[in-house]
Design a protein around this nucleic acid. Structure first.
Length: 107
DNA sequence: TGCTTGACATGGG
DNA sequence: CCCCATGCCAAGC
């Protein structure tokens, strides 16, 4: 496994309750700013094994991008359980809920 | 080894 | 705001 992959896993595990991160952010934080698609794959194949909070990962627009309707509904419910409120059907406010680890370094 | 596959991102029309 | 093309790169086959 590549170090990048491991980083992605750790980062996703570090997302706190009630917060979300975008694929691009995670990829960048893991060391490759253009590897959003690898994050996708990792979520696909490792979310079970590593118990990743996959539902806290959304796209750059702050929308749910699960292909199936059931998956989308499930993710939405999981996020709502954590206190996140949706503006529209599958749209949430990134301004409010986006988790940026940079807070730790710069604050 | 080489080609295909994505739950993405970004920019242009 | 929606749709499309293109870039990207590790994992699977």
């Amino acid at each position: 496994m590549q170090p990048f992959t491991l980083n992605v896993i750790k980062i996703i595990q570090s997302i706190p309750r009630g917060k979300v991160m975008t694929y691009g952010q995670i990829a960048k934080a893991a060391g490759s700013n253009r590897a959003a698609r690898q994050v996708v794959r990792i979520l696909h194949s490792m979310s079970e094994k590593y118990q990743l909070p996959w539902h806290r990962v959304v796209n750059a627009s702050g929308k749910l991008t699960i292909p199936t309707e059931e998956g989308k509904v499930l993710q939405k419910q999981l996020l709502q359980n954590e206190g996140i409120v949706f503006e529209k059907d599958d749209q949430l406010s990134l301004k409010r809920y986006m988790y940026d680890p940079i807070e730790f370094w710069e604050e």
